[in-house]
């Protein structure tokens, strides 16, 4: 033990030396003070752009305030805004088209997204390349996507009508995706599906990759057919991921605005007027600020409530 002998003086110093707190070295600030110093800017920012507007909106929703008449006397009108919203058939129509839009985009994106993920999960040559190709739509700006799909949908020069006519034989100029009352909602659903299916696919792919190979091996030895493996292993084990994708897309599409505004602006008539378009019209065309604040609060509570119920279900599935 003579080889690594520590001198007594050094040993003493090592034994008594306690590292000084970080704070003591930074101009006498306590650790707690430093923590606050770092957090405060973020908290101020959060209060200013999130919490304060929310509280202000709640306040405005009980008044007849109009943002284009700042000099008018603002009257508190209690729950009038809320009752007129909930009894307004136009609002209910908007909610209905939102629900229609959310339902079909989620259904199509989940089905197509999961199928693509399932196919890409096989380890074939070049699956990395195809994954990247499929992801491209999702990386584009919605403004770009909206504008070029407007061109694609053009009945005279658009590719979309020609492709449909190529496969079905229908005259390409005989129908108009954006202009028709029945087809306009579907034109938006198609674009949203085209753009966001890759996103759902990516989450589903992560879910499928998380299932270890040996589970499939065990199932195979247990004489489970591919079909049975799919339904009793793949689907249940990937379900939390699928549900997560549905949650993200559901919240996003509930407040969908950009694509609708670019493609149809709510038309023709009000057939594609989803809730966010109605909200924009009430707030910035009709300038009914109080009324639209109340509507915004209703939308917020609806999304928040639905998402909460959904997250509970998701946790239940996950904890299994």
């Amino acid at each position: 033990m003579t080889g690594n002998h520590i001198p007594d003086a050094l040993a003493n110093r090592l034994a008594t030396a306690t590292p000084p707190k970080l704070a003591a070295r930074v101009r006498g600030l306590s650790d707690k003070a430093i923590a606050w110093l770092f957090i405060t800017p973020t908290m101020i920012l959060l209060l200013a752009i999130n919490i304060f507007p929310l509280i202000w909106t709640i306040r405005l929703s009980f008044t007849d305030f109009r943002a284009n008449r700042t000099n008018a006397v603002v009257k508190g009108i209690g729950l009038d805004n809320y009752t007129s919203i909930l009894t307004d058939p136009d609002i209910w129509a908007a909610m209905q088209s939102t629900a229609h839009f959310v339902f079909w985009t989620i259904t199509m994106q989940t089905l197509i997204g999961f199928t693509l993920a399932y196919l890409l999960d096989r380890k074939f040559r070049g699956h990395g390349f195809w994954t990247t190709i499929i992801l491209i739509p999702m990386m584009l700006s919605p403004a770009v996507v909206g504008n070029f799909w407007r061109f694609l949908y053009q009945p005279q020069i658009g590719l979309f009508n020609y492709i449909i006519s190529f496969f079905t034989g229908v005259d390409p100029s005989s129908f108009e995706m954006i202009g028709s009352v029945t087809l306009a909602p579907w034109s938006i659903i198609i674009v949203d599906t085209w753009m966001w299916t890759p996103y759902v696919m990516l989450i589903c792919l992560a879910g499928l990759r998380s299932i270890p190979d040996y589970i499939y091996e065990a199932a195979e030895v247990d004489r489970a057919s591919t079909w049975r493996q799919f339904w009793s292993i793949t689907i249940p084990m990937a379900l939390p991921f699928i549900m997560l994708a549905v949650l993200f897309r559901g919240i996003e599409n509930f407040k969908m605005f950009d694509m609708v505004n670019l493609l149809t602006s709510g038309g023709p008539g009000s057939t594609t007027e989803v809730a966010s378009i109605t909200l924009k019209r009430e707030a910035f065309e009709k300038w009914r600020t109080g009324f639209s604040s109340a509507f915004a609060i209703i939308l917020f509570v609806t999304v928040f409530g639905l998402a909460n119920i959904y997250v509970k279900a998701l946790n239940q599935v996950k904890s299994r």
Binding site: Y214, E217, A219, V221, R223
Partner: peptide
């Protein structure tokens, strides 16, 4: 699946 063998895996492999 057609061999009719049973396998106990080292890492349990429970569902």
């Amino acid at each position: 699946s057609d061999r009719d063998v049973a396998f106990v895996f080292q890492q349990y492999s429970l569902y």
